[in-house]
């Protein structure tokens, strides 16, 4: 252990030595000045027979044999490497804290809801809970699809064609949260045969588009997918 320590410290010392050359030079200059002043100095040396106060040993053996540039490159390399590693460590630390804030595994496990569509007859609404919010799934009849597609959507408050709101025309999937103040609208109600929000009287049509009332936007469409003919995955 001690051998290791001494060797590593010797190594480090070798590394640190390269800065010494200029210092040695300055102190030499100081010494020279000392000698010039010596004759008239009032200095009284405590060492017997010693007349000079400035005896500076030779640092020649510590002087780097390499040129200045290569020593500088080495020094900047060491400092730069330390900065780089510190940067990597800091980045990893910050990243870990940020990842900590993202959704945990149990939330992610609940983030997707799978549903069997074959149990929903035509012309029926189903409400399921997804991430704490209700999701309306409506199996639309052919008449309803026609009605939704034929509506003059360009003049609506939030103009959207029906094709942009349903991946398959017979299945309408929407977040059941009124875009006005977040109430849950009632299905198969309202002036347009779709949904009606009882809180402030917003009317949505059979494609979930707002037609009347204070709501500013159409009912939101969550992400969903049909992995097979008879099932849907929301999320």
């Amino acid at each position: 252990m001690s051998a290791l320590t001494s060797r590593s410290s010797a190594l480090l010392r070798t590394c640190a030595r390269q800065r010494l050359a200029p210092i040695a030079a300055t102190s030499m200059a100081a010494q020279r000045r000392g000698k010039a002043d010596q004759a008239t100095s009032s200095f009284d040396s405590p060492f017997r027979g010693e007349t000079s106060s400035t005896k500076i040993p030779s640092f020649a053996s510590y002087k780097s044999s390499k040129g200045e540039t290569s020593n500088k490159v080495f020094q900047y390399f060491m400092v730069g490497t330390m900065g780089m590693l510190t940067g990597v460590g800091a980045k990893a630390t910050v990243q870990d804290f940020l990842v900590n804030m993202s959704a945990s595994a149990d939330v992610l496990a609940q983030a997707k809801v799978e549903l069997d569509l074959s149990a929903i007859p035509e012309g029926k609404n189903v409400i399921i809970k997804w991430r704490g919010k209700p999701v309306f799934i409506r199996h639309r009849t052919a008449d309803e699809i026609k009605e939704a597609e034929d509506a003059k959507w360009e003049s609506f408050r939030d103009p959207q064609p029906d094709s942009a709101r349903a991946k398959k025309p017979e299945w309408l999937v929407m977040l059941g949260v009124c875009t006005h103040l977040g109430c849950v609208p009632i299905g198969e109600a309202g002036d347009f045969g779709g949904w009606f929000c009882p809180c402030h009287g917003s009317h949505y049509d059979i494609s979930g588009r707002v037609r009347k009332g204070p709501a500013p936007l159409n009912l939101e469409i969550p992400e969903y997918d049909f992995p097979s003919e008879t099932s849907i995955v929301i999320g």
Partner: peptide, 23 residues
Amino acid sequence: VWVKRYKWSPIKTRKIVYNPPVK
């Protein structure tokens, strides 16, 4: 450790010279 020694080497190896006032 290397950088510490590097930064300290001028301080650790300096020599303070006292030039007494001339009588």
